[in-house]
Simulated assay, not measured.
Amino acid sequence: MDTRPGDDLIDRIRTHPGDDAVVGPAANDLLDELYAGYPVENLGRLIHSNDAASVKTGAWLLSELGERAAPLMTEIPALLGHPLLYVRFFAVEVVLTNAADGPVIARTLNLSQDPEPAVRWKVLRFLAAATTDQLAAGVPHLPAGHIRTLTEWLIHQETEQANPREIIERLDADDLTTRLFAAAAAARLSGKDPALLERAADTETEEIRSFALERLRSSR
């Protein structure tokens, strides 16, 4: 029986010979097949694999598909809680580019306290780019506490009059999560007050500094 090119590529990725592991030629070819109409649902063979490289590749492919990843949104909660930081990192991107429901957004917001700086950096990008409706959808699914309070504060910066001095004070807070949300507020308001993002770029926290510098470069 003839197989579709996408099926062959998935088999090749699962055996990951040589440089085809994670993001190699086979993964890029499979991405082309997915954009050409190969069913996204077939990526379940990768993300449910016992092989770490295959799961990483599946997560990366989903992050590259934008709204085309929608058929596998039911898989995202598990990927957000995956033990591999690489998988969590790209799962956050999938949430940003799709109409995720409130519980999934809440799980994403909770990753602002992830132990891995790379994942926190990705969540910071989510906090800066998500719509207020997306953020608001997650609030009811967060327990009363620090992250819920910070999310409500972040929404308030756009729905009410922002307080630049308060944002700067929070950028200097002892608590890392508070600083992340403050950096997101600085980015969201940078069109009106770029000095806030410049202040974020001066922080000693690497994920905040690199994020702010990237945003400043892209705005020039």
Rank of each mutant, 00 (worst) to 15 (best):
E64C: 15
F126T: 03
L216S: 11
A185P: 01
T177N: 06
T132D: 12
D7T: 07
D11L: 06
P17S: 15
E160F: 09
A69D: 12
E214F: 09
I76V: 08
T149G: 10
V92F: 08
E152H: 05
I10Y: 06
P140L: 01
A144K: 11
V22D: 05
L34R: 14
A69N: 10
L72M: 15
T74Q: 08
V40Q: 07
L124Y: 01
V139C: 07
A201P: 04
K56T: 00
T178S: 13
R88T: 01
A200G: 12
P143G: 00
V23S: 07
R68H: 14
I167H: 07
I13W: 03
I47V: 14
L80M: 09
L189C: 02
R120A: 05
G24V: 05
R12N: 12
Q113P: 01
Y38S: 08
A26T: 03
I167W: 07
P164L: 01
A183V: 04
E64S: 15
A187C: 11
A69Y: 05
L65E: 02
P71G: 08
D114P: 03
P143R: 02
S63N: 03
D19F: 08
F90Y: 15
A70Q: 07
T149W: 11
A91E: 01
A91K: 06
L80P: 07
P71V: 12
L79C: 03
L216H: 12
D202R: 15
I208P: 08
P5N: 06
V23A: 14
D7G: 00
V104S: 08
P164W: 01
A182Y: 08
V55P: 05
V123C: 03
E67A: 14
R220H: 09
F89T: 00
R220Q: 07
L79E: 10
S54W: 04
S190G: 04
L85F: 11
D175P: 13
T203D: 10
S49K: 14
Q113I: 05
A129D: 10
A137V: 07
Y86Q: 02
Q157A: 05
T15Q: 13
K192G: 00
V139T: 08
D11Q: 07
V94P: 03
Y86A: 06
A137H: 10
R88K: 02
A70M: 05
H82K: 03
A212W: 01
M73H: 03
A99P: 00
D174S: 13
L9K: 04
I105W: 03
G24F: 02
V104L: 10
A52P: 12
Q157V: 06
A99G: 09
A182D: 05
T149R: 11
M1L: 11
D19S: 15
A184E: 09
G6D: 11
T131K: 05
H82G: 03
T149M: 09
S112H: 09
A137C: 12
I208E: 11
L171M: 03
I168Q: 09
W153G: 04
L109Y: 02
G66E: 08
P194A: 08
D11G: 03
V119L: 02
L31V: 00
A212C: 09
A70W: 00
E75T: 06
I47G: 10
R188A: 06
